[in-house]
């Protein structure tokens, strides 16, 4: 039954319904519980009430950010695992997280900047510049993308930036204090402005990812076979790297480093959907925001004063991942 088109469509349908449900939960649950009817009323017939203000001004941007960040990280993760054929690869492997953190340390520690909106631009610039450097080192400027070398270049550059960064933070307690809250990833205190800032980059990344997906199936056969089948392996890899940079760079800039979504969801999607990358991508698009929104909701009510979403994501996701990995057949890449 698994693997037939109707089964896959059914999965996608269920996931879509679940995503709507998760969004409603995210709008309604929190320090103040708000009825579903009241949530819906806030959209259809907004009034000057406290509940409607909470839904529209604080929880709506948070929910939208959760959806946008979730699907960006998930798609970026699926792409990086497909082009490196490495199950350990997450979007951070191209140096996105390390670059963003490093830029934040420079912004806080050396330039003394302390507004969330300014952080976004620094983190995004750091992520993009680092990935560009990884790409240049990994390909030696020749535009032939070798996945193993790309991976190692990303790990190496990421390590250097992390090392210098943690050296700087250990010498600068203020930067350390800021960074320890940023490095965990949180959807709290996000505004519509911030969503609007990162949304165009994410949209561009998604469109580019769409162009790359077609070539990923051939690539799974190995570079030689894919090339002999007429697929341009190199073009696919370059498009994918571009998409990953835009998607995970903007997501990380907006909410901090959330590591686990991009690593886990593509594995889950592959086991549910089978090896076809187009279906994996479609499932990832729906699964990742669900995980992020549900984790965020759980984080709001788990302890007084909220748990950051980055913590909850791992605690909800990891048991699912481990349980799935213990099934009889897990497919590799």
């Amino acid at each position: 039954m698994a693997g037939t088109p109707s089964w896959r469509l059914l999965v996608l349908l269920i996931a879509a319904v679940a995503l709507v449900g998760a969004s409603l939960l995210s709008l309604g649950v929190g320090a103040k519980f708000i009825d579903v009817s009241d949530v819906v009323a806030a959209f259809l017939n907004p009034q000057d009430s406290v509940n409607h203000a909470i839904v529209l001004e604080s929880r709506l941007p948070r929910t939208l950010m959760g959806i946008a960040v979730g699907l960006s990280l998930g798609v970026a993760g699926a792409l990086i695992q497909a082009i490196t054929r490495n199950p350990l690869a997450d979007p951070g492997i191209l140096g996105v997280n390390a670059g963003a953190s490093f830029a934040m340390i420079v912004a806080i520690g050396l330039l003394g900047i302390s507004s969330l909106t300014a952080y976004i631009w620094f983190a995004f610039a750091g992520a993009v510049l680092t990935t560009a450097a990884v790409y240049v080192i990994g390909t030696s400027g020749r535009n032939v993308v070798n996945p193993i070398r790309l991976t190692l270049a990303g790990v190496a550059l990421g390590a250097v930036l992390t090392g210098i960064g943690s050296g700087l933070t250990l010498l600068n307690p203020k930067a350390f204090d800021h960074l320890r809250s940023w490095s965990i990833g949180s959807l709290d205190q996000r505004t519509m402005d911030m969503v609007a800032t990162v949304a165009p980059f994410m949209a561009a990344g998604l469109v580019i990812a769409l162009f790359a997906v077609g070539g990923l199936n051939a690539m799974a056969l190995g570079d030689d076979l894919a090339t002999s089948l007429g697929s341009n392996v190199n073009r696919t890899r370059i498009l994918a790297v571009l998409a990953i940079t835009l998607l995970s760079g903007s997501a990380t800039a907006a909410v901090g480093a959330i590591g686990f979504v991009g690593l886990m969801i593509p594995h889950v999607a592959r086991w549910v959907m089978g090896p076809d990358q187009r279906w994996i991508m479609a499932a990832t698009l729906l699964f990742s925001p669900i995980l992020l929104l549900v984790s965020d909701v759980v984080g709001r009510i788990a302890v007084p004063g909220e748990l950051p979403v980055g913590v909850v994501t791992a605690f909800i996701g990891a048991p699912v991942l481990i349980a799935l990995a213990r099934r009889k057949k897990v497919s590799g890449l």
Partner: peptide, 10 residues
């Protein structure tokens, strides 16, 4: 590898 990823992430 997969179980290790999950455990380490948690």
């Amino acid at each position: 590898i997969i179980v290790g990823i999950g455990m380490s992430a948690m």
